[in-house]
Design a protein around this nucleic acid. Sequence first.
DNA 1: TGTTTGTCGAGACTGTTAGTCTTGTCAAGT
DNA 2: ACTTGACAAGACTAACAGTCTCGACAAACA
Lengths: 200, 200
Amino acid sequence: MNATDPQPGTTRPHTGRRRNEAAHQAILDAALRLLAESDGTPVTIDAIARTAGVGKQTVYRWWPSKGAVLLDALADRADQAAPAPSTGDLRADLRTFIATTFDGAQRGTTAPALRTLAREAARDPHLAELMQTFTASRRTALRELLTRGRERGELAEDADLDLIVDQVYGLFWYRFLLGHAPLTADIADHLATTLITGNA
Amino acid sequence: MNATDPQPGTTRPHTGRRRNEAAHQAILDAALRLLAESDGTPVTIDAIARTAGVGKQTVYRWWPSKGAVLLDALADRADQAAPAPSTGDLRADLRTFIATTFDGAQRGTTAPALRTLAREAARDPHLAELMQTFTASRRTALRELLTRGRERGELAEDADLDLIVDQVYGLFWYRFLLGHAPLTADIADHLATTLITGNA
DNA sequence: TGTTTGTCGAGACTGTTAGTCTTGTCAAGT
DNA sequence: ACTTGACAAGACTAACAGTCTCGACAAACA
């Protein structure tokens, strides 16, 4: 190490042209629009760059892979993820959580975007990992909701909380991706009731 | 139409070299082996043809797409799909059906092959459609099992059978594809019980 | 004002893969 | 022998992810 090496904790003063925030946003917007308009066809980086009026290299300067861009584009929107409800009534909280999940995924143009993202994740291990950390927080929120209910005695001591969580998200993704049957508030209501009564 | 057109119901006598059944089987074997050995990496047609010692065109002479080959390779094995049990006890029949499904998907080298196939189907609409007709027969078998139980009064008249079916397959695919939690006989047992008691 | 540094848009380039096309060979029937 | 069509080999096209290069430009600093 000599005097010209960068020092830990110190940062060389910035020089050169600054990053263009407008380009960043244009890329995200283009990705989201293409994702939403996609009929299941994969969204390409070329298309995103062209739509955003940006060079491909600019995309790769900000994100490490196509999947990262797509996830980021959708994450903006999902950051408004509702906090888990906690009214003190497990069945009502669970019902609200499930209904909110169903609704959030299907509201506006989110559905085709999320579907396309999931399909891409099936063949892109990098994206799959990113997506898993993203969905993990919702799984945790649901699990904590159930834990609170169990502590209040609304669920059996030995109830398999992970199984209940997987039953919710299993049904959700199965119907969401295949699209052969609806995900309505009625279904959410029914699900909340049966999942609790079967494990109380 | 004139006299040289092929007549419906008549077939011009076959001429030329006959199809090589050995090549057909070699392709299927190669596809199944590569599918089973795959660590999630997509299986390529070139690899199948090379492994089978066959020209690529020979593959495409017999199957319309890569997906069709892969599905066919796996379908051979799954044809041994167990018939739906019918003992007269809904809970026992349902438990057996679910446990058989879990077990069949995980026995031997089937699991990685089926996982790879499902991942490919996520981005290949042609394969997705083929796979859907394939899985539809199992869904129907399960639905009929439930219908018989309902006729015996073991399920409420207004029980949502499609929802129960989707809950079974939703959980199955969710855990099977993500692999974060097991699909054991215990789970099958628990599932059979709660799905019935919640809808009885 | 001019120099340095690093981003910008544009697009050429590489590597991979599905699916098609070509070629010369070989087997089954006439 | 001759015709027909399957065969193995592999060249070819079209997409696409990701890298590399280039000349232009913008921000700091001298």
